[in-house]
Computed example of a mutant assay.
Amino acid sequence: MKIETVDDLRKLRYGIIGAGALGGFYGSLLCKNGYRTAFLMRSTAKDVKEHGLKINSAWGKWEVHPEVFDSPQDMGVCDILIVGLKTISNVSLKEIFKHTVGPQTIVITLQNGFGNEEYIESMLPDNSATPGISRVIGGCSFICCWRENSTVINHTAGGNIEFAELDGVERPRIKAICQMLNDMKIPCAIKSSPADVRWHKLVWNIPFSGLGLVAKADTAAVLNSPELRATARRIMAEIQMIAKQDGIDITDKFCEWQFERTESMGHYKSSMQIDYECKREAEVEAILGEPVRRARKLGVAVPLMEMIYGAAKLLNCLNIQDAK
């Protein structure tokens, strides 16, 4: 499948796997801009089929009526799949890909945490038309959005996306995808590697999501507490050390900017904190556990991250037991 320009991308069929707040938001923008987009949904499929999807965004308000499917068999093969699924549901991907991935399908992951690109690649059917070139593109979204109900998504801040090819090569396909999103007014950039993208995202995710769950503190509470704010900055310093050992430079200026941009979020709760409060399993392993394991492998001491991970893991387990 030749992808060199935005015009090439306009001919394709897109599939959103995990059309929750994040997947639904970006999928709605594809629909709004005339791209043929199918949503794979479970519990919300019937409501979205009947009423459409409404977006209340910092970028405006819109409503779309996409193709909606409640099974991968009915959805069928797509040219580009965007995975916004929570990492705790990754076990379902092999069955989903069996019906939605063709020989030339490209899979873009916008999931949180580490290890997603490798896992997704291992779940793809062995039918690639481009052996030697990964069909997976790693990405992260820096966004504040959440579902108000089954048919309404709220977006209050952020929205930019960073991508990287697994081997770091800037192929025409990733340049065209980035241009397409920029044309849609979604700020987009290409980075040197998935690790570069993910370590930078985790500079915010680990302290604010981790403290949100363990201390039951929204972003405003973390910022307004001298102790929690200082702890968040020390966690960021640990992430800087791991990333440096992994070949990624994260500047102090970038860390300080996390506090500046979080000020505009108000009393925002991360998806990890919301999942915990709703008695759902939180993405503790992908966001907290895997970075800690990588730190151990690289020989970097991260006592604060170890403590946050241990506490969050226990709370998550107890929470799941209580929900049963």
Rank of each mutant, 00 (worst) to 15 (best):
N182F: 12
N182I: 11
M180S: 03
W146E: 11
R147W: 04
I161W: 09
I177T: 08
G158T: 00
M180H: 11
K175E: 05
V152A: 01
A157P: 02
D167P: 01
I177W: 01
G168M: 11
P172E: 00
P172Y: 08
P172F: 08
E170L: 15
G158C: 06
L166D: 02
M184L: 07
G168E: 06
N149T: 08
H155Y: 09
E170A: 11
E148N: 08
K175H: 07
T156K: 14
E148S: 03
E165Y: 06
R147H: 05
I177K: 01
C178F: 14
T151C: 03
W146Y: 15
V152Y: 06
D183G: 14
Q179C: 12
V169P: 14
W146Q: 00
A176V: 01
V152I: 04
N149P: 03
E165M: 15
V169I: 15
E170G: 09
V152C: 10
T151E: 01
W146F: 15
M180F: 01
E170V: 14
I161G: 05
N160W: 11
T151M: 01
E148W: 03
A176I: 05
N182A: 15
N154R: 04
G168A: 09
D183V: 07
L181E: 12
L166Q: 06
R171P: 10
E162C: 11
G158N: 05
S150W: 10
I177M: 09
D167E: 04
L166V: 05
I153L: 05
M180I: 04
C178E: 09
F163E: 00
S150T: 03
N160K: 14
M184R: 07
A164D: 02
G158M: 08
W146K: 08
M184N: 00
N149A: 04
N160A: 13
I161T: 01
D183K: 12
V152P: 02
N160S: 13
T156S: 15
T151A: 06
I153M: 05
G159S: 11
G159W: 14
P172C: 04
P172L: 03
N149V: 10
K175R: 08
I153C: 10
T151R: 00
E170Y: 14
Q179K: 14
R173K: 15
C178H: 11
I161E: 07
T151W: 12
K175D: 00
E162I: 09
R147E: 10
C178K: 04
E162T: 04
N160I: 00
E170D: 14
D167L: 01
I161R: 12
W146I: 09
A176S: 10
Q179D: 13
M184Y: 02
E170R: 14
W146H: 13
A157W: 12
F163M: 03
L166P: 07
